[in-house]
Design a protein around this nucleic acid. Structure first.
Lengths: 231, 231
DNA sequence: GGAATAGTGTCTCTAAGACAGTATCTA
DNA sequence: TAGATACTGTCTTAGAGACACTATTCC
């Protein structure tokens, strides 16, 4: 029996990762875009991404985390695979595969005026190269969907938060008002928050709100609801 | 400015698709495995899969459909991306990416005793090469999860079905009994089925059941529930 | 007629939403 | 003290589950 080469010679496929980094700014979801330095589409704003470095990255997740670190200076507490986009026509360089991840980070982690950083509201995206617009739309839909029955939006808050703050984050993500009593019942059931004893958020001309923090168990894992938050 | 090559020379990444084909046999989910003809792991049962053919496949979805057709002789009415598995260590041939799809088909489409076909119950999987076991587990979890709030399980039925049949399919997938009244209310709300006038399933020693068929709109698209089927 | 399952009417119970009341801050 | 928002108690309402009753077949 003739010995076959281990890896047959198929035309090469371009293998990349892209990251949809979402944050909350002015009560609305925004996506982080970078001005591309290289061709194709040099100069236009696109999702941060890059080639998989087979020597360096143990997995595609690691590649995405590396891209996030190198290009955005961010280590996201939440980085999950969205989907993989592929095909002959999405990239002029040839048949390509892009494994896309999405991340949620509080705005204040996106430190400083990065030179080429553009925060675009997801409700009014600019022209974007490749299939990046459709990718962002899918990521937003995924985040909205997951937010209905999980603690996902807490990753958009900082370390500490009050319940009214968290509710307004949920409302911004879901795009609709939530019943206050139901919301607090749900958050209570989820059991992911604990009040910081004696710490109240004062300063406003009304009763101060209890400050909570995420329980350590849920720092990296989502907490799921049986039934979603029924708008 | 020096001209850069369009595609930098990174070590090649192996690009494949794999398919988790699920079906219902003896009231339990089974996954279709094929005995591998080629190294690595020749002889052991694994998910059907193959290289992406950049000349032939327009997208990875097309590649998965081709694999399903060529290796299983099946054209699945439902074929959706599950996730992408990647890394340096999952395949002895080197750094690899596998874009994994899952399909649901009625048992009778898996015609005949294919030589190398093994239908393994998902609750008792055999040893499988690569990370295929974890892939199957993820696919099953996805199907269970989606079945709670969508019409996904109808793809496990044939063209026509009765409500008791469909309920038993849901129960097999979800692994728990469902309240009959609630189930019928939900299916009614979904609006995906229409009764075939005058067609009843007779033959058993009891009242015959109305036969339904899927409305054309839902032949390829899922129908979603507001609130899931609450076991 | 008896056994068996199909299909339906209706009560109960759980949980979400509405609403209004009390609490506690700044100006 | 007035105004604002935080927080809570409780009533209403929608929907899921339980249960029982009728329907229709084969033997």
């Amino acid at each position: 029996m003739p010995h076959k080469p281990a890896v047959p010679e198929f035309p090469p496929v371009i293998c990349t990762v892209d990251v949809v980094l979402l944050t909350l700014k002015d009560q609305a979801l925004h996506v982080a875009l970078l001005k591309r330095k290289n061709e194709p589409f040099a100069g236009s704003s696109a999702l941060p991404g890059g080639y998989i470095h087979a020597q360096e990255d143990r997995t595609a997740w690691d590649a995405a985390a590396r891209v996030l670190q190198d290009k955005m200076g961010v280590t996201s507490p939440y980085l999950e695979q969205l989907a993989t986009y592929s095909g002959a026509e999405r990239d002029p360089r040839g048949w390509s595969v892009s494994i896309v991840y999405y991340a949620l980070v509080p705005l204040d982690l996106l430190t400083v005026g990065k030179e080429n950083l553009l925060l675009a509201p997801v409700s009014n995206l600019p022209k974007m190269p490749f299939d990046h617009k459709s990718i962002v739309d899918t990521a937003v839909a995924r985040v909205r969907s997951k937010s209905q029955y999980s603690s996902l939006p807490v990753y958009l808050c900082g370390e500490r938060m009050t319940l009214p703050q968290l509710q307004s984050v949920y409302e911004a993500v879901l795009g609709e008002p939530i019943n206050k009593v139901s919301f607090r019942r749900k958050i209570d059931e989820l059991g992911m928050l604990e009040p910081i004893e004696g710490e109240l958020q004062t300063g406003a001309a009304h009763r101060p709100a209890q400050v909570y923090r995420l329980r350590p168990t849920y720092r990296r894992a989502l907490s799921l609801m049986q039934r979603g938050i029924n708008s």
